[in-house]
Amino acid sequence: MKYAFYPGCVSKGGTPELYEATVKVAEKLEFELEEMRDVGCTGAGVLSREISDPINARTFAKAEASNLPIMTICSTCQGVMAQAQHRLKDEKYRNYINSEFLSDEGLEYKGTVEIRHMLWAVVEDFGLDRLKNIVVRSLEGLPVAHFYGCYLRRPPELMVPPEFKKTRKTALEDVIEALGGKVVKSSGRGKCCGFPILTSNEDNSLQMCGDHTLDAKEKGAVTLVTPCPLCHLELDGKQADAAAYRGEDINMPVLHLPQLIGLALGFTAKEMAMQRHLVSTEPVEMALGFEVKA
């Protein structure tokens, strides 16, 4: 399967380990990734739609011209793009965006692009049975708490529409199980991680981060896994601050989705660049029988 790969800003900046793990795992899954370089940021739900819609339409036009579906590795990129894609189904609006913003460059978005998060590509394009068959290091009951990131869940009519309910409603849980892991249902799994309000209300943001990571810990998870690098920036990057804010130890590793898949496909923790995390991933490595430096 070949994709127009849209890595997003964060996998090239704050979470480089996600990009590294994605490229290696994609190769194992025989996903051919044609990286989209000449494209802009989605706007991440921060920028006004008046400016992010034309930028996203430009990305869509380029993917459409290459006749490839877009593959994202970020719940936020996926969500923002899906909402833009939905608005751009309106022909009048699409014509306006094309003529006002894209025609100078000779581009036109025709409204046919497909956008798939890697999680969905694994479940829908590669298949869970095939995934089970290529597992070389079963997670053997490793308790994993799943954390989707709100933009991969809502609005539900766009993110989990009826025709994809079977595959997308429990996609993350299904992948964890296919890899041999045990799903731990954390109460925050479909909720906001707290990252979007980090600047405007840090206390509330840290409260959320603490709630999610502590809940996973209390339920016996050895790690959280997320398909969203913004959730990772919060749950891994701000976990120490959340622990200080709450006055409690947390130490809950947070893996990116491709890292969890990669471990089960035989990659080492280093190959999955887990040393880049701010919260040590040693508990996961020890549980999987890796040698961990004392």
Binding site: R37, D38, V39, G40, E50, I51, R58, F101
Partner: peptide, 19 residues
């Protein structure tokens, strides 16, 4: 900078004129 940053800047500039 992204390879297409000038095109993104151009989109911004058009939008800024409109608003």
């Amino acid at each position: 900078k992204r390879p297409g940053h000038k095109k993104i800047r151009s989109i911004f500039e058009k939008w800024e004129v409109k608003k």
